[in-house]
Amino acid sequence: MSQHVLETDGQVCPFPLVEAGAAIALLAPGDELVINFDCTQATDALPQWAAEHGYPVTNFERVGNAQWTITVLKA
């Protein structure tokens, strides 16, 4: 069980989502993926994507002006 970080700051949608999908495919079940992002639309798209794929969200917060982090667990 390990934690991986995906930095997507500076990338506009849909790239944070596309990269998150590619990244989580490489992880083992039980691993966590931390996605750091600054695209506003991803505050809607990423939690929606996690919910629809059945990945529990273990952390989701705004870390600064227009900067967010979300952690999803590969279940």
Binding site: P47, A51, E52, H53, G54, E61, R62
Partner: peptide
Amino acid sequence: PELPVAALP
């Protein structure tokens, strides 16, 4: 969706 959609605190 399979799980509830997470919201910011």
